[in-house]
């Protein structure tokens, strides 16, 4: 094989794969940012970035499965707040509770809230946006009730609790390890299990899914269970990482998670997308947020930049899809 065809092949691979173009986009932006502020590549800064996006990556994966099934979960932020607050309060009131029990509590609460969403969507047949819009207020309101409108501060938490995400193994923090484990499990689940593929099926073509025996309501229910479970876990991580549990925590975080998915090439109409893309999308947000100060924009512009990136990603998705469809039509013409 000569060099030219190899190059062609690489070009084709990049053009055909959303993930590859994202990697290139990431590399280019890293390079540009690196030129403007050399500190960017310092090991402490890289460490900061990956620690910053760990929770976002987990919640984006939660959101990914929901969007894949052609839904949306607006309540993830509220689930994080409720389970995070609960974890913080358990630690405050019963300092002797082992960490893993607290983690289980966070997971269990998330699962329960996900089950409520799932039951309403899958069996109550309420559109996901309406369901989660409603449960978003309910869960957030319940957080205030749980905390009696107070918050848990750093000095009310035990050291073991606070240090959990900061511990290091092989030079990487526990927080990042948690995210990595979630990513790997989610990847395997989405590619190598029947349930994972069923989510692709109901998102891509619910009628066809029925023909091959995939239960739409059961799968939808599972999707929200996963979303709740991961958000509950994220709640625990959030409280420990920021060493405080406030009622407003993670508000608006659902939108960031959706944004990572959009950037990662997940189709809003359901049925296509992958874990790697979503993680890259989250990584991209982490890098941009980190680099904003060195781009001479104050932190208040963060939201604006995020919105702009999502909009551009949407436009690119549409234009690429459009061109692909046209090309395919033209090819069919020629072949005939």
């Amino acid at each position: 094989m000569n060099g030219k065809t190899a190059l062609n092949k690489i070009g084709k691979w990049i053009g055909g794969r959303r993930e590859a173009s994202l990697v290139i986009l990431l590399l280019i932006s890293c390079l540009l940012i690196g030129v403007m502020s050399p500190d960017f590549f310092s090991s402490t800064n890289v460490d900061t970035i990956i620690n910053d996006i760990a929770i976002l990556a987990i919640v984006s994966i939660a959101q990914f499965f929901v969007i894949l099934s052609n839904g949306i979960d607006i309540s993830v932020g509220a689930i994080i707040a409720f389970s995070g607050m609960a974890c913080g309060m358990i630690n405050q009131d019963h300092p002797g509770t082992p960490i893993f029990v607290i983690i289980l509590a966070g997971l269990g609460l998330g699962l329960a809230m996900g089950a409520i969403n799932g039951a309403l969507v899958a069996y109550g047949k309420i559109p996901p946006i309406i369901t989660t819009l409603g449960t978003c207020s309910i869960f957030r309101g319940s957080t205030f009730l749980l905390s009696k409108n107070t918050w848990v501060t750093a000095h009310e938490m035990t050291d073991a609790f606070k240090h959990f995400p900061r511990g290091r193994f092989l030079g990487i923090t526990t927080l990042v390890w948690c995210a990595l484990i979630v990513i790997v499990i989610a990847y395997v689940f989405s590619r190598y299990t029947r349930t994972g593929r069923a989510i692709y099926a109901i998102g891509g073509n619910p009628t066809a899914a029925k023909f091959v025996g995939v239960s739409e309501s059961k799968t939808r229910f599972i999707v929200f269970l996963i979303s709740g479970l991961l958000s509950g876990f994220a709640g625990f991580l959030w409280t420990t990482r920021y060493a405080s549990a406030v009622n407003e925590m993670a508000s608006g975080f659902e939108m960031q998670a959706v944004a990572s998915c959009v950037l990662g090439g997940v189709n809003f109409a359901g049925g296509s997308g992958g874990i790697i893309g979503v993680v890259l999308g989250a990584l991209f947000f982490g890098i941009i947020n980190n680099a904003l100060p060195s781009l001479y924009l104050n932190v208040f512009w963060q939201l604006f930049v995020q919105g702009l990136i999502v909009l551009i990603a949407l436009m690119v998705n549409t234009i690429v899809d459009d061109r692909k469809a046209r090309k395919l039509l033209a090819q069919r013409r020629v072949s005939k």
Partner: peptide, 23 residues
């Protein structure tokens, strides 16, 4: 069936095996 029962975003292999994937 006509096209209604295909998953356009998934591969040929997966379209054949959806619902009874081999494990």
């Amino acid at each position: 069936h006509q096209e209604a029962s295909m998953f356009p975003e998934l591969s040929v292999t997966e379209n054949i095996y959806m619902g009874h994937h081999q494990r």
